[in-house]
Design a protein around this nucleic acid. Sequence first.
DNA 1: TATATTCTGAAAATCACTTTCAATGGGGGG
DNA 2: CCCCCCATTGAAAGTGATTTTCAGAATATA
Lengths: 143, 143
Amino acid sequence: MKKAKKKIFHDFITRRGLKSTRQRDIILDAFLSSERHMSIEELYLKLRTRHPSIGYATVYRTLKLFAESGIANEIHFGDGQTRYEHVSEGEHHDHLVCTRCGAIIEFENETIEKLQAEVADSHGFLIETHKLELYGACEKCRK
Amino acid sequence: MKKAKKKIFHDFITRRGLKSTRQRDIILDAFLSSERHMSIEELYLKLRTRHPSIGYATVYRTLKLFAESGIANEIHFGDGQTRYEHVSEGEHHDHLVCTRCGAIIEFENETIEKLQAEVADSHGFLIETHKLELYGACEKCRK
DNA sequence: TATATTCTGAAAATCACTTTCAATGGGGGG
DNA sequence: CCCCCCATTGAAAGTGATTTTCAGAATATA
């Protein structure tokens, strides 16, 4: 599936008349082999050990491209840091965010989604995206 | 209920050994008599017409105090502006955010809340707060 | 009222990005 | 295979929102 995502990204690059570069490949590899919720800073630091010449701006620019191409999603957890998560075809999930240790747990719940759609309908509202985050203490941190 | 909130805030001020000042009173009045979702900028501009000497920093600092005292809530809608909304005792609501015109519609749904609690439980997670936002087109903007 | 803090406004600093710019590098046309 | 036109890059400057600093002003308490 890493391959599938690489293909999606390269197709996107081509379609847009952009260029395939060494930096983009390196950043894509680093992103695909990282945790699911990576802040830009974290990814940049991870990259820096092996590729110290890659600039901060390039990481920012490239992650934006990942999001546009559909292989990544931008997320904000209210801590002023933008994160990117991997997107898998047709899947949607929400997050439990531990305010103690920062752990992020993903979950899916169709009933909630259905109810959201009902609420929106009843207001004549057309949902494009949504964000559901539960903040609190994860199992480990409760003790 | 404005009075109730003023009291809550003053009690908070006292409890913390802080001081009651002219500026805080003015900002509190302006906040309480404003729309439910006010950005800091908006509140600052509103204040400036009558009280041009109140500084930006003071507005920021004071709104933070409102949030700490429990009479206001900080919210982020992903547009890089922090907003504050009024908090009413024991009430919780979520938002429909129109990505076209910026309108914000509030809603409550107990069933969703219940399902959220179930999801959290099943992960051993203890919810403190949550955020549910549905982004899309409001009734007016759909046409 | 004296006194010890806390507050305030203005300006400088920070933080997380974004843009600029000159140099470098892909990649289709010839 | 080489050109040449753009896209891309890294470093540095620029942004926009928010915070901090600092010296003077305002409160609360003794």
